[in-house]
Structure formats: C-alpha cells, structure tokens
Simulated assay, not measured.
Amino acid sequence: MEYLVMLPGPTNVPNRVMNAMLAPVINHRSDDFRVLYKEIFEKTQKVFQTTGDIVLLTTSGTGAVETSVVNLIKKGDKAVIPVNGEFSTRLADLIDSWGGQAIRIKAPFGENPPYEEFEKVFDQHKDIKALYAVYNETSTGTTIRYMDKLGQLASRKGAFFVADSVSILGGDELPVDRWNIDVCVTASQKALAAPPGVSPVSVSARAKKYMQENPPPTAYLNLKRYFKYQEEHFETPFTPALPLYYAFREALNMILEEGMDNRIRRHKICADAFYAGLNAMGLTPFAKPDARSNVVIAVNYLQGMDDKKFRGLLGEQFKVLVAGGFGDLKGKVFRVGCMGEVHKYHVMRTLSSIASAMNMIGVKANPEATSVALDRLKALN
C-alpha cells in the first residue's frame, strides 16, 4: 500500500502530474521551451489572479521567501511583520539579517494580532518600506483572515505588501491584484499539488520597477535578471528544472479545470470535516476559531498521546503520514495537511486511522467521529 501523504507539504501528487515528468528533456534556449514557459507563465497568472509578472524559481518555498526580501529590503529599511509562529519568526529574522529593521507585531502562537495594531505601527513609523505577512502559518495551522485590509493599509501608506503564501495558495482565497499584493510567493508542493522544486513569485508593476532600478547584490535570486530574460526571450537566466516544469504545468491545468472557486470550496468542506471529526474524538485544534486554517489542521495532543509512538503507528500500521510540531510545539501538537487533491477519501482514511491509532495506544476515540465527518463531506459533489 502506498503512503497517504497528509503532511503540510509535500502532499499527494496526482498521477497525471507525476506522469508529465516523463516528457523528454529539451533545450531551455529553444522555441519549444519558450512555448512551455509562456504557457506556465499565463496559467500561473490565472491561479494567482494577477496581471503582474510571474517568475518561476527552481527553489523550495524558502528560496522564494528569501527572494522577496533580498529584492526589496535595503540596509535600514523598516518592514512590519506579524509574528505568531515558526515561519513568521524566520521571516522577521531574515529581514534583520539582510540589514533591514523588522518591526514585529507579536501574537501568541495560534492567534493573529488585532488588525488595529498594524494601523498603530504605521502611525508611529512614517517611513515603513514594506508590510510582510505569512498568510498561513504552517507551524500552527493559523491563517490571517484580514489580508485584504492589510493590502489596503499598505497601499494607503505607500508601502509594499508582501504575502508569504507558501502553504495556502491554491487552497484558499487569494486574489493577488484585488488584495493589493505587490509580491506573492508560494511553492509547488503544497496546495498546488505538484512535486517540490518550483516556487512561483508574482510581482506587481510598482515592485518590478523598484527591483529593476535597485537590483540586489546577488545572482541567482536577482529578479531583475529574470525580468530581462523573460522580456527578451521568454526564457530563464539559469537552467530550470525541466521535468518539474512539465509537472507544474499539468498541476496548473488541473486547477484551472476544476476552477478556483470550486477548489477553494472543496478545501473548506474538507477542513470542516477534519475539525468536526477530530472534535468528536475529543481532540481540539491548536489555533483559535477565528484564525483556523483550511489547509493545515494543527491538533493538540491529549494526555497519554506520545507524539513519536502515535505518528509512528499512523505511518507504519496505516500508511498515513502526518507531521509533528516543532520548536516550542514539538511533542504538543500534530499537523494534518488538508491541501492539494484532498477529498472524501483522504479525510475519511486519515480520520479512521487516527481513531484506530488512538485506541491502540490506550486513548479511546469516539467511534461515531468518522460519521460526523462524513456528514460534513456530503456537501462535496
């Protein structure tokens, strides 16, 4: 039996996406490649819901996040960022290490700071260069539900708005242009349901102009070079991961065939089913109700549930992979990825395996929990 990969990334990849990588290798300085790249460019724009430029980096999501910093932040620049988890902490530290000044708006893990705190910070600092936000904090299953208001605020104040959407784009609402997002970064292996290794970045016209006029002292992550090659030849400045490009194109095809609204609705229904089923087992979400993610379900362990033993049973006995917590949350929570091609089968197999593993370690799970989840899943076609 194959593993059911219910991690917060990488996630399950549909067979037609995996099979796309069997296409022959081509010259990345050829007309064949330009056709491929242009098609991916245009389809990525549709998924991002933007008319802005798209750059495809051959990196993990972290490479795309770092790109957003090195191309915008200069020494002494102020950047506001809400910090409420591992990845937002890393991003704030990255801004500081690059010479910027990260103004951290802190909130307890599992919560978001009140929107009003951002207005206060902008009133206190008149020279803020950028507002960064980790839209979905993968470490805690927490989603910012006022991204649109942050975009309006940044626009009013003349600051760049940067969205780290690595674990959420393709699984929840994210209209880049409508939310005034200047730079949006994501990664192929999360809600887009493609193999790891491609990280798309969208860039607004305003941000692009700034980056072209103020290129960073770096080579591989220098977006000015990518813009130049795209405008002159519709190529990449460096050798791309060609098999991954084929897979990514097929993943985009599947997303557009389903339709973004349908895809987002499916993710929400599956998340509701997870939360309902887990709650019926006596398990509680880590994130507060107004901040709970539809793509990463973080769950508190009950007393008597050992992380290593529990997740080991899930993987070894039931071939279901879920993630543990890390940092301060190590051993305290486990995390389920509800993303990509997630559907009834994924939810029900995961929940039934969790219930069985709990019973095996002596923590009784309500046998009715799966029927509670199944009732929520009736809303799916």
Rank of each mutant, 00 (worst) to 15 (best):
L4M: 01
G9F: 08
A23L: 15
R29P: 14
F33Q: 07
R34D: 14
V35F: 15
Y37P: 01
T44G: 01
V55I: 03
L56N: 03
T59H: 10
G61H: 12
T62Q: 12
E66K: 10
V70P: 09
V70G: 09
G76S: 13
D77K: 02
K78E: 05
I81V: 00
V83R: 00
E86T: 08
S97T: 10
W98Q: 03
K106C: 08
P113W: 06
Q124S: 15
K126L: 04
K126Y: 14
L131W: 00
G141T: 05
K149H: 08
K149C: 12
G151C: 02
Q152I: 15
W179L: 12
I181D: 01
I181N: 05
I181L: 05
T186W: 07
T186P: 08
A187D: 07
S199H: 05
S204V: 11
S204D: 07
N214Y: 09
Q230D: 01
H233E: 13
P237K: 03
F248H: 02
N253D: 06
I264A: 03
R266D: 09
C270F: 02
N279M: 10
A280M: 10
A298Q: 08
F310W: 09
F310R: 01
G325H: 02
V333L: 12
R335D: 06
R335P: 00
H346S: 14
M358E: 03
V372C: 06
L374M: 13
K378D: 15
